[in-house]
Design a protein around this nucleic acid. Structure first.
Lengths: 350, 350
DNA sequence: TTGTAGGCGTTATCAC
DNA sequence: GTGATAACGCCTACAA
């Protein structure tokens, strides 16, 4: 009878279950699937979770039922049991700095590919905000990428003891990090400048709390010594366009023929202010930066800069979080991210 | 005795519990607190969760114990029970487009202020990727902000039926959205151009799937008609610098004295290509864009554009998600985000 | 290969 | 005002 009356309502067990799911206003669970596939919930969990651990026939039934009920696993329930949230945190000092775009994209790409979700927090360049943001998302993530962190080495170390941490553009003893090959980039830049006849150069430093600014400075200092070029450090300064603009006066006062800014944003600001004050770049002053961000090709003359592959940096950081051993420990100089000099119009003969 | 021997070890109950927590390699739970404060776990939950519902003395003991054990609530456990994850999703077409910076910052700011965590996904301008990304993070979030979505109205509607959704720069019947006041911006821009004597203008369109591109075009068309200015639409084009560069030839062929690009990125590309081909902006061609992104002041001449307050857009979208009623329904023309014309050097007399 | 049972950390619903 | 107890949805020994 039942098989004959095709018009009969409510006979489809799947429909019955779906109705119940809708009624409780939620999503399908493994219990619903178990009921429809006529197996135990634990069997469903296994069929969905591990490949070969279940008979092909049962697995097929389970998958069909899951499909039918439009099942999505509840990440919270899974996380509660396993302790793994499949989420990764990315902490940035300043989201509006074009420098971070590449990092975000690379990290998101790699995270998504591995089935992880990326959560983002911004510290607005404040160490306090950063600590707060980290505390806030620490319980929800399996690991953390700190790009341009303003935290001290101690705080970073303690953090790394709690959860996997990977640093970008920062090295701390015992903590994984993704670093560009600063040496190589600086070498290329300095010989470029030397080749143009510059004998007196200034380095426009970033914030005091920036590890990378110090790193670049020490590298530049060494390269200058080696070439017998006069070098001065100016700063510290805010790592923004505004920071660059404000520094022009001191750069001029230093009477150098070329200036290397901590980052492209500062270099850009420097050039804008130079243009505003009638200082011709590169005729009267050569300017170079770091990172090769968006905008370096827009300005006139376009900016000479040391390119860093930020997308790869983001990818690597996430890879390292997911399977430790891929990235690089402090000062293990191979495996640094390649860096290359992009010569554009902002540098010229002295 | 016990009270006398101050040197006695392991007598501090807090220490004992802390040791046990460390031993199991996890974090403190409300059970640990309950034990230390000598109350029931449910009391701990209440003391921590709701304000007045507990006696002051008990609450104090609980808080002290929580502090002592460095307790952080487990968001997964809470979410499992409440169904609320306190996470919000932000889906973007292209993270590297400076257009999104403001949105991300605004959204993150507002989310953090409300104790929410922001998770980010990028679709790389592909509707398929976008759908996939949304499926991936839907179970983990309480709501979704879609900025520059490439999804169809149907898909968006179905999505909004499952979870709270707020759109930025896109309107769909029955779905909340945050929209700029396109009319006002276009009016200002067109009268600016008319005042400069332009009688023939081109609109360089964005992608076909971009709602906002169509919106801007219809607004421009109306404003041009009203002023008896000749207007042509060129496109569709890719909404990037490259897309702008590629369009120059068609813009020239149209013999217009001014071009309005769908967004600043395309305007920037147009100008770069113009410079490369010896077309002088604004003498031979006036160029204007939309959004006022990073970089518009860098290029020479700086770009005239219709500024949109993207940070506020991001904030509003999140506010609306958190407490519906704040933002604006389709075509409810008040409550649009104010927009204003920024006149710079890329527009001049015809 | 599959079922049973217990637990992950929290909140909610009852009692008292 | 506080305590006991049962979910929330999933995973995982252990047993069968």
């Amino acid at each position: 009878m039942g098989t004959q009356s095709v018009t009969e309502q409510g006979d489809d067990p799947a429909e019955t279950i779906l109705a119940r799911i809708r009624a409780r206003g939620g999503a399908a669970t493994i219990y619903d699937i178990a009921e429809l596939a006529e197996v135990n919930p634990s069997t469903v969990s296994r069929a969905l979770g591990k490949p070969g651990r279940i008979s092909a026939a049962t697995a097929a039934r389970v998958h069909a039922a899951a499909e039918r009920l439009d099942f999505r696993i509840n990440p919270m329930a899974r996380a509660l049991q396993t302790g793994k949230t499949r989420m990764l945190g990315l902490v940035l000092a300043d989201i509006t700095n074009p420098f971070v775009f590449g990092i975000v994209r690379g990290a998101e790409l790699e995270a998504a590919a591995a089935g992880y979700t990326l959560v983002i927090a911004e510290s607005q360049e404040s160490g306090e905000n950063e600590a707060e943001a980290i505390e806030r998302l620490l319980p929800s993530v399996d690991g953390l990428v700190l790009a341009t962190t303003r935290l001290g080495a101690g705080a970073i170390g303690r953090l790394a003891a709690r959860k996997p941490v990977v640093l970008i553009n920062r090295a701390v003893e015992g903590v994984q990090s993704v670093l560009p090959d600063v040496e190589a980039g600086v070498e290329a830049l300095m010989s470029h400048l030397a080749g143009l006849g510059h004998r007196s150069v200034a380095y426009l430093a970033g914030p005091d709390s920036s590890w990378m600014s110090a790193r670049r400075w020490s590298s530049i200092l060494a390269a200058a010594e080696q070439r017998d070029i006069a070098i001065v450090e100016i700063g510290p300064g805010v790592p923004t366009i505004e920071g660059g603009r404000e520094a022009l006066r001191r750069v001029n006062a230093a009477r150098v023929s070329a200036v290397i800014a901590y980052n492209d944003l500062m270099a850009l600001g420097l050039m804008q202010e130079a243009a505003a004050r009638g200082v011709v770049v590169p005729d009267q002053l050569s300017v170079a930066g770091f990172d090769d961000i968006f905008g370096t090709e827009l300005i006139t003359p376009p900016l000479t800069t040391v390119h860093a592959d930020l997308i790869t940096a983001g990818r690597r950081a996430v890879q390292e979080l997911l399977e430790p051993g891929t990235a690089v420990q402090i000062e293990q100089s191979d495996d640094l991210l390649p860096t290359r000099l992009i010569v554009r119009g902002s540098t010229g003969t002295a």
